[in-house]
Nucleic acid binder design. Structure first.
Lengths: 137, 137
DNA sequence: TCCGCAGTCTTGATTCATTCAAGAAAAGGT
DNA sequence: ACCTTTTCTTGAATGAATCAAGACTGCGGA
């Protein structure tokens, strides 16, 4: 991802282009499933210094704009990934907490069909596979 | 659920029977998807007083013993339910955070098949359906 | 029935991710 | 270049969850 890409993505999303936002977007695109602390570290390596709060704000803004996706498996802090818009899920290791992407087994918008939706208007199905990663086995 | 049921469930799980544990188990069985604060309130109504810590300990012990299941949708605190051992999932309302049970659409152990497991040994598939409940619509 | 010990509960403090608040800085249209 | 709005900085606060040490109690054995 070139600098320009991040910039135009931000502009297309009606967001102001700041060094912090570009750095956050690039950091998450480079290393998926980053937690907030890691994003802060990555951004600091890039732009010198950023406040805790700025990164939280940026992560929220980008997530609301649909440029990032927030995931948070039980027992983990919030993590972010730049792969958005497709229907993919995650495998989480019970041992080390590592995460890997998994394409949805049932096709494009598969899991959206619940057996009984209890009157809820369902718009997303999130799947988390729990298991043990190769390293922890 | 009669008092005796909770007691024997605890004994069968090799756990000591205490008033606190019985009260926690009954409270969660009575009202599913309770968060920890609500469990504390319910237990206090039952046994007079309990420490914060005791309830946390009990919830963990019962969860590890398989008598309770812990669920934690993104952005929510930990919640517990007594319905264990079956393969059921949840619908969560984006508006009010309410939760309802959903039987797995694909059968007994359905979602366990990931398209590519990346070498992970998968033992559970957790599905969260996100949407809007009838009240919030 | 009584004793003892391992497992549990109480009390009180602590951690840490996340949020709140107010003012300073910067983006971008005019 | 200016002005307005958004964003960032600084510093404090919130709140779920955990840690630690001592008191209590379930329950198996004497």
């Amino acid at each position: 991802m070139h600098p320009l890409d991040a910039e135009s993505m931000l502009r297309d999303a009606q967001l102001r282009v700041t060094r912090q936002r570009v750095a956050v977007l690039e950091a998450v695109a480079r290393a998926p499933h980053l937690d907030t602390e890691s994003v802060i570290a990555a951004v600091r390596a890039e732009v010198g210094s950023v406040s805790h709060q700025a990164v939280y704000d940026v992560l929220r803004a980008l997530t609301e704009a649909g440029l990032l996706r927030r995931i948070q498996p039980s027992g983990s802090v919030a993590r972010y990934e730049a792969r958005v818009g497709d229907n993919h899920h995650h495998v989480v290791c019970r041992g080390c907490g590592s995460i890997a992407d998994v394409d949805c087994a049932t096709g494009a918008a598969p899991c959206l069909t619940a057996s009984d939706d209890h009157g809820y208007a369902i718009d997303e199905a999130e799947v988390v596979y729990w298991g043990t990663c190769p390293t922890c086995s």
